[in-house]
Amino acid sequence: MSHDRGKLEAIFDRYSRQPESLIAVLQDIQKEYRYLPGPALLETAEALKVPLSKVFSVSTFYNAFSLTPKGETVVRICVGTTCHIRGAKVIQQQIENMLGIKAGETTPDMKFTIEVVACVGACAMAPVVAVNDQFHGGVTVAGLKRLVKKV
C-alpha cells in the first residue's frame, strides 16, 4: 500500500505531534489503512519524536493494531468463557467454513478478516460475534448465515 503523506500529516497535526498521543495516532492510521504500514510507522516516529523501536513495540503490543492489511469487514468472534460454553467454537468453525479462511486470516479479495477475541464484555448476550464493531448477541448458526449474507 502506497501511503498518502497528506493523510498522515493530517493525522499528526490532529494531535499536535505530541509524543504522548502515539496510540491515538496509531489508531487513526489503523482506521485509515485498516493496518499499520511499515513506512507509516517510520513517519510516525519522526513526526512525534518517538524512537522507532517504541512505535514498533506499541504497534505489536495491542491487538487493535495490525501490521498486515485487514479485510473490509472484520468479523470478531468472542471465545471468552461464557461464549465458549454457549458454543463459540461451533460459531467459529461455521464462519471459517463460510469464508474459507481460518481465524486470524483475511480472504484473498480483502473483503473479510476473522479474529477471535478473549472477551468483549457482553457475556449476557453470549455467544457474541462483532461485525465491524457492530455487536450481535445470541448468535445461532442459522442467524450467522443471514448476518454474513447481509455484509
Partner: peptide
C-alpha cells in the same frame, strides 16, 4: 539510542529491532 524494544506480548514477546529488520538507530 532506543534501537531495540520488546515486540509483541504474552507468549510471543521477544526483544527485537523495529519491523524485525536491521535497526536504523
Amino acid at each position: 539510542f532506543s534501537a531495540i524494544s520488546t515486540v509483541g506480548r504474552g507468549h510471543d514477546k521477544v526483544v527485537a529491532p523495529p519491523l524485525k529488520e536491521a535497526p536504523p538507530d
